[in-house]
């Protein structure tokens, strides 16, 4: 198969891949910001004592984790217009990724907060801090550090998941590969190329993870 692998065709399609890559990067970035907001809100609901906020948050997180992203994507893609929201595919895709990743991020943040030893909370309570003060000054700054690496892991997952948006014809990276594969009937050229680009994105995010852990490791060391 590889003896007639056509680099020339790949070069020919490079502008399309380039546009797809750029779209994947910014739609993933937007989705990640959306997911962070969704995650923070869900996590805040999930940490409340009463069930009024906690129960819906838990139900939502379970529903998202238990169902395929593709099903969620189609649910929004076909469901939103029925409710009267006719949105561009790209917007639907970003909403779907935000809502999906947000559920995972909620759990990552919750784990980070719960990893802070009980004694930290007791010390801040004993010094007369209010709930908001001890979250802001003691718990969240420490939780933030332990949360960064898994959050970047989730960012990598999100970038790969964004490939599914090709199925609702968003012109992102995977869509570019599909076009090449179907136009020229060259699946190897199409999909190996996008795989290489995803790998590149992966190393960029991983580089961020390494940098951030180095930075967090020196500032205010924990034994």
């Amino acid at each position: 198969m590889l003896e007639n692998f056509s680099f020339r065709t790949i070069v020919e399609y490079l502008p399309l891949f380039g546009q797809g890559l750029v779209t994947t990067v910014w739609l993933s970035a937007l989705s990640f910001v959306g997911a962070l907001i969704v995650g923070i809100v869900l996590c805040a609901m999930n940490l409340q004592r009463g069930w009024l906020f906690r129960a819906p948050a838990k139900a939502y997180i379970d529903a998202v984790r238990a169902t395929p992203l593709l099903a969620q994507l189609y649910f929004l893609y076909f469901g939103l217009p029925r409710l009267g929201f006719v949105l561009p595919e790209l917007v639907v895709g970003i909403i779907a990724l935000s809502l999906n990743s947000g559920a995972y991020i909620a759990e990552i943040i919750r784990a980070g907060i719960l990893s802070i030893p009980r004694g930290q909370v007791e010390a801040s309570v004993a010094s007369g801090m209010t709930y908001v003060q001890r979250m802001r000054l003691v718990v969240l700054p420490q939780a933030f550090k332990v949360t960064i690496p898994p959050l970047l892991g989730q960012a990598i997952v999100l970038v790969k998941d964004s490939a599914l948006l090709s199925l609702i014809s968003v012109a992102e990276l995977t869509r570019a590969g599909q076009l090449l594969a179907s136009d020229r009937f060259m699946p190897a050229e199409g999909f190996l190329t996008i795989a290489a680009f995803y790998l590149l994105l992966y190393y960029c995010i991983k580089g961020l993870a390494v940098l951030s852990s180095r930075w967090l490791g020196t500032a205010g060391a924990r034994a």
């Binding site: 007791e122 010390a123 004993a126 010094s127 007369g128 003691v138 700054p141 420490q142 205010g220 924990r222």
Partner: peptide, 17 residues
């Protein structure tokens, strides 16, 4: 509580400060 200091067995200093 602001009038009461509490010293813990395990110190519980804030590690990021």
């Amino acid at each position: 509580r602001t009038e009461i200091g509490f010293v813990f067995q395990s110190f519980n200093l804030y590690p990021h400060k």
